[in-house]
Each structure stands twice: as C-alpha cells, then as structure tokens.
Design a protein around this nucleic acid. Structure first.
Lengths: 146, 146
DNA sequence: CCCTGGTAGTACGAACTCGCAGTAGTAAGA
DNA sequence: TCTTACTACTGCGAGTTCGTACTACCAGGG
C-alpha cells in the first residue's frame, strides 16, 4: 500500500516507520507509566541537566510543548528546576531520585522491545544505524536551509 | 547529546529522526491546511478507497483515532463514506474532488521539502530507503511477535 | 541609568489523540 | 431460527500538543 501510494519517497517512509516505532514503544512502556516521548526525555535528563530550549531543539518540538512536559514531570515529582546562575530567564531540568527510578523501570520495559527489533535486524543493524544518522543530518540541514 | 544518552540504540534514533521529519513536514505543509499525518492519509486515499481498519493498520494508529480523522475529513468535505456491500458494519473511505484538490495543493508544498532532503542525501538515498524498509518489516514483526 | 531590541519561558485555549464503553452487524453452531 | 461469540465502528471524556499572546530577563547604545 505504502509503495504504490508514494513511489520512492524517503519522507513518507520515515513517517511510516516512525508511527510503527512509537506504537511499539508506547505499547512496551505502557505499564511503566511513561510514553515513548517521556522516556526519551527522561533518558536525556538521566545523563545530565539541560534547559527547556535545549530539550526543544533536541526533540524538534516547540518550546510550549516542552513547557507542558516540565509541568507534568514536576507534578509527578520526577523532575526539579534548578536555577541557572548565568541567565535568570532560564533554568535547568534535573531528574530527581524518584524520576531516576521511573526511568529505570521504563528502561526494563524498553530493553526487551529494543532486543526484539535488533534481533530481527541482525547484522543489518549497523547499516540501518548509519542510514538513520545520514538521514538525521540531512533533515537538520534541510530544516535550517543549510 | 543523543549519542551519549543512548549509546547505539536504533529505536531511539528512529524516534529522533521521526520527530525531525514530522516537524519539517508540518512546517512545509502549514499553509496547505494539512498536517503531515493528514497528508499521508490523503495520499493513500488518493490511490483508492480503503476501510478505516485498513488505514489504522497501515498507519499503526488505534481505530478510534482513525474514526476521529474520518469525522474531521468528512466535515471538510474532503472524504466520503461509501457503503461496503460485503460487510454492513464497515464502509470505504473515498477522497472527494475537493479532497483531491487539497491533496494536490499539499503535494505542491511537500515536494520542495522532499527535494531538499533528497538533495542532501545524494546517492545515499537508495541505501537509506533500503534501511527504512528493513526497519519497517522488523518493527512489524516485533509488534506482532513474528 | 534609561531605553530598545532580542531571547527564555509560561498561561491559555482550541484542536487533537486515544482508551473505555457501547451499538450494530456478522458468523456459526445447536 | 435462536443463541453466542466475534468484529467494525462510534460517542464520550480525560489527557496532550502547540500557536498566540503574554511576562521576565538580558545586552548594548546613548
């Protein structure tokens, strides 16, 4: 269905793949209480604090959306706002101990799903990863007009 | 940021790529009045009628979501429900003439975005397309448990 | 120390997604 | 033909996304 619809069409294929990925992840993560988007954000914060704007850029979402995320995460007690001494307009987001635990719980649900996909990709995985990297940089370049 | 966060992690990379793609498409399509999701659906219907369930499977979305889509599209006068003689519970979706025009208008906005990405991919495009196809079938297989 | 232009983030509201519970039609065995 | 089980779809409502219109803060020239 997809092929005849669009002919050869990278963007369409990405769109389709992305829907399938998110569906799979949301399904896998359902019991953990996080969505795929949320798990991704928690994963970033687990590495270290960052500002809302950085997060918005990284995940290609408008800042208003990130603002909603922060509010939600804060209410859950998973994320804390830390003042940014260099810039009073901004702040940094930090995962709390409770947030870290939630991330670990979600990770336990995420890993089997990842393993299932990797298993099916077999030795093609590295070429798929390479393709995604190329695609990502092409998209960023196209979005910013170079 | 992404790399150190996740190590080598296909699902995460897909997620990231997908966000960038959707953002680019929504941006490009903004004036046409369709979102990336809507344009994708219109593209399928442009090829020929199909049922809500087929659409839901194809785009990895729950049927309730498709149901909302249909309602919206119908109110716009872009889509028509055609009775399914084989099954009285179901029906087929058909793009109206007006819907076809909307699709063409959106397509005119979509093509430059596609060209921009393809241009940046250059001769890597075919390997990217192949990788996406592999990924898609791996995801479907993982979702259904084989 | 004002302005003035620019940037970070938020409140709000409209539109959207999707789970739950329900309706209607089908299929198949007694 | 009458269950009984199943499948296709919809209504509703809670929770989400994101654009518009703000407020708060920074930076630099006069």
């Amino acid at each position: 269905m997809a092929q005849q619809t669009t002919g050869s069409n990278v963007l369409f294929d990405v769109w389709l793949t992305s829907r399938a990925t998110t569906a799979l992840l949301d399904e896998a993560l359902a019991d953990s209480g996080l969505t795929a988007d949320e798990f991704a954000v928690y994963s970033v914060l687990h590495v270290g604090p960052c500002t809302p704007t950085e997060l918005a850029t990284w995940m290609s979402a408008p800042l208003t959306t990130v603002s909603s995320f922060v509010k939600r995460f804060e209410q859950r007690g998973h994320v804390r706002r830390v003042a940014n001494p260099d810039d009073g307009r901004s702040y940094r987001l930090q995962l709390t101990r409770e947030g870290g635990r939630a991330w670990e719980r979600a990770g336990a649900a995420f890993l089997p799903a990842l393993a299932a996909v990797r298993g099916r990709l077999g030795r093609d995985e590295s070429s798929v990863a390479a393709a995604l990297a190329m695609l990502q940089s092409a998209l960023r370049a196209a979005a910013t007009g170079d």
